[in-house]
Design a protein around this nucleic acid. Sequence first.
DNA 1: CTGTTAGCGCCTTCAT
DNA 2: ATGAAGGCGCTAACAG
Lengths: 349, 349
Amino acid sequence: MSVTRVDVARRAGVSEAVVSYVVNDGPRPVAAETRERVKAAIEELGYRPNVMAKALMGGATGTVGLLMPSPANPFFAELAEAIEKALVARDNHVLIGIVTGASARGEEYVASFIDRRVDGLIVIANPLLETALVDAAGRTPIVFLDRIAKLRGSSSVMVDNVAGSAYAVEHLQSHGHRVIGCIAGPPGIGASVDRVAGWRRQQQSVGHDSSDDFVAFGEFTEAGGEAAAYTLLAPEGRLAATGREVPSAIFVSSDIQAIGAIHACSLLGLRVPEDVALVSFDGTKIGQFARPSLTALRQPIHDMARDAVSMILDSDDGRPARPRASVLQGNLVLGESCGCRDDVGSHRV
Amino acid sequence: MSVTRVDVARRAGVSEAVVSYVVNDGPRPVAAETRERVKAAIEELGYRPNVMAKALMGGATGTVGLLMPSPANPFFAELAEAIEKALVARDNHVLIGIVTGASARGEEYVASFIDRRVDGLIVIANPLLETALVDAAGRTPIVFLDRIAKLRGSSSVMVDNVAGSAYAVEHLQSHGHRVIGCIAGPPGIGASVDRVAGWRRQQQSVGHDSSDDFVAFGEFTEAGGEAAAYTLLAPEGRLAATGREVPSAIFVSSDIQAIGAIHACSLLGLRVPEDVALVSFDGTKIGQFARPSLTALRQPIHDMARDAVSMILDSDDGRPARPRASVLQGNLVLGESCGCRDDVGSHRV
DNA sequence: CTGTTAGCGCCTTCAT
DNA sequence: ATGAAGGCGCTAACAG
């Protein structure tokens, strides 16, 4: 079968313990010469420590669990990839769990991950995991992404959704828009709430209407964005139907919804950005290839991933992990959807 | 600490072995009454078998490894999600590895996954893993997706790329197109090669030009598709520059490339589908929200996932897994990009 | 500095 | 039908 520590020990003419000391750099010192001999034996035999046995002893497994929404949303796909890369760069691996909307599978995932002795859990905003995570919190470090950690001892990485959204809305205002709608994410998710808050704050700060009539909620999907856009823009929609002023611009809470919204505009015969200007949140790659390309508040995906991973991995270093929290800022990426560019059609990417 | 089998045994007033028999339904029978008592104890104590210990004994870990390209390509994102769902539905979990282009990390992933005792490996087309997988093949079942299994003992799930592409091209031909270009995926990947073959076969079968001049290779990314489109369509591109006839239609090997190609057309002032008709391969959700929406050959994602998972999980059931192979057919999804629909009037360029 | 050894939690013959 | 005991590969305390 596979080569074990005993084989290495025999080959190097030492005891099993010494092999351990060499592999783990401790807890006891080893003579330089002996160490070389052992290393050679390991090399020659192609010995690899058995992760299971180590875990059984309570050691680290080099595996962290990632709980995330569907990667059909390109933002989550990009974020997941960034996290995976950051983890692998530090010799860890990812156990993944996709927690879709209403499914209560969350608890099962958490339990299974704990069973598999993950060294930590990275959880991307999903309000349904509350109870499941409570008891997990005591067993392994947890980092929340895009969600304030209410759990004792857990950490969080946030982007400043309020400031980012406000900035995006301000950009729209700078183009002269006054009636600016808001397509929100699913209610109940912190990020959704904050982005609406950012839109509202910015509209209020210059005295524009920010009543709930201008807010349409939808899932973080193309269809969600499309439906929300209809609500705000269609002749039979909420606003037009009651004779209210129809927005000349919309702040959309995610790129994927913006793509759906553009689709809706297209079907309604509205041009983007001429008839309706759009700015969204996320700044994904595919948004830049949308037609028109999206002006969006880009989330600092790689920084988010780096911080989250660091909070998990560096916690083990000294003591039981002191909870941390980081708040990152996004930046605006200019595309065509806001009406900024006159040179539509003449630029290269 | 956590509750072990000993606790359950004590609580139920039986020996540890009996607990095992109950948990695993064997290998020895247990009296119905005793069984109930043990089950009750398990329930009350919230006992969960230690996966690590079981794996140490050579048992299944309920974890399978998935090696895939970047989920920034929505097709892979959808496929990965389908696989994850299929696996979880059968009480397994996914260790994920994203293997990007030229990185030779493949070997590391495979080794790490084996270390973690995965019950199987699902590998989505990546030519770089050859050597790494050779020795893995003996240790765990492997299923290749979109790639013929050359490895002894491994299985594969394929979609009929040649037939699918040919069908897509035929659709273009039915609209009257004769000069049809081909945007290919990265050379070296079986699926790429086959899709070009399908395009060529169909063009040849009706006597149209299918020379290499009409084929442009590119990565499975937006940028890859954009660049390839330039090659075929731009005034300074390969064809126009030499006075050759410029395609009135293009078969694109993936949705994500098609999105890039549309972008290129837009920048070149070419309307889709009026000036250039497009049909792509994949049939992802986001393709339906592209502008124009994509006519595409949809891959049977859920069937692919189901088959792949079944090949891994059902192999363990009886004997050492008899290698299987399944070939699935796609179906054409009609969108606006091919020019089928007359109701594109609502779109402006 | 290096060797010995007792578990970690579980499964599985082998007895009873 | 049930219990006892060995061992999976590794770590860490405890000798030497």
